[in-house]
Design a protein around this nucleic acid. Structure first.
Ligand code: MN
Ligand code: MN
Ligand code: ZN
Ligand code: ZN
Lengths: 149, 149
DNA sequence: TCTCATATTTGTAATCGTTATAATATTAAA
DNA sequence: TTTAATATTATAACGATTACAAATATGAGA
């Protein structure tokens, strides 16, 4: 995924459906319309949506889509390791198609989840541990919500 | 809490019930027997238990205790900021009486949650944000579970 | 193209951790 | 002791997620 992303000509441009279709194929995922649209939403919006937010948005385009399909698809993407789950808030799983190492900040006022760049992280006492996942989650007030104290 | 902990003569010794009672009083929390035992379990065991683990253990001493009391008490402790919630695993809130800044590691095999010392953390792009909570959560295999690959 | 096996989607019911509610019991104040 | 406030308890309700099974779509081979 990271390797693939690096190959994109303009990494910050939205992914086209064709490009997503090709990508899912490469990952051994049959690119059904529902899967295309779910991955498109994750990778182009980058808002760390919940399953329900994805469901409510895609319903406008695909009235027949079911919540179960959204959950099934997200689990499939997780199994294939093309997205990650963000558990910054209890009882509210969020999803993220950006896999490079970064942290998250959730604003307690407006609810938005922002990406945070990690410049350096040094840990002690991890000798003997095999680390497979790292999550850095912050909470507080975002710049817009801090205005005027 | 940190200030109080520093005042303890032997910080690594278990807290006595008297000491806990005094501490809760200081924090404006009436030290009922249930509250004493719940805080005692958190501060002396340091295993980051779930509400249900606390309930199952304390039931042996206090057969009348209810799950609701455990949840109510944990929420009270959170509101008074004498414990923190650890959301390293989805759908499994854990609780921790250690408030000084440290990370957590959950072993995917044995399920144990370990404390991790953080030597240095440098973040970029946080200008304008007001950070109120920080959580560093790792997952993988612990030393005991790594043995022999 | 047609057929049939397989993969995918869908609606519904079930599960699980947690919270809300209201009755009962305990404690503190008058 | 009487009363009011607080804490505990059992039960029901909730919300996010998962299990299940039926319906639909897809695609390789005849
Ligand atoms: Mn992100
Ligand atoms: Mn801890
Ligand atoms: Zn905000
Ligand atoms: Zn282990």
């Amino acid at each position: 995924m990271r390797a693939y992303a690096k190959l994109r000509e303009k990494p910050d441009m939205p992914w086209s459906l064709d490009e997503i279709s090709q990508f899912l194929d490469q990952q051994g995922i049959r690119p059904s319309f529902q899967r295309l649209k779910i991955f498109e939403y994750l990778v182009n919006e980058r808002t760390h949506p919940t399953a329900d937010e994805i469901y409510e948005v895609l319903r406008k385009d695909i009235p027949s889509i079911s919540r179960t399909t959204v959950y099934n698809t997200l689990r499939l993407f997780l199994d294939k390791k093309i997205i990650q789950m963000v558990n910054i808030e209890k009882n509210e799983a969020r999803y993220d198609a950006t896999l490079s190492w970064h942290g998250h900040f959730k604003c307690l006022k407006c609810g938005q989840v922002y990406d945070i760049e990690i410049e350096e992280l040094k840990l002690g006492g991890l000798a003997g541990y095999q680390v497979l996942e790292k999550h850095l989650d912050l909470k507080g007030l975002c710049p817009s919500c801090c205005q005027g104290k």
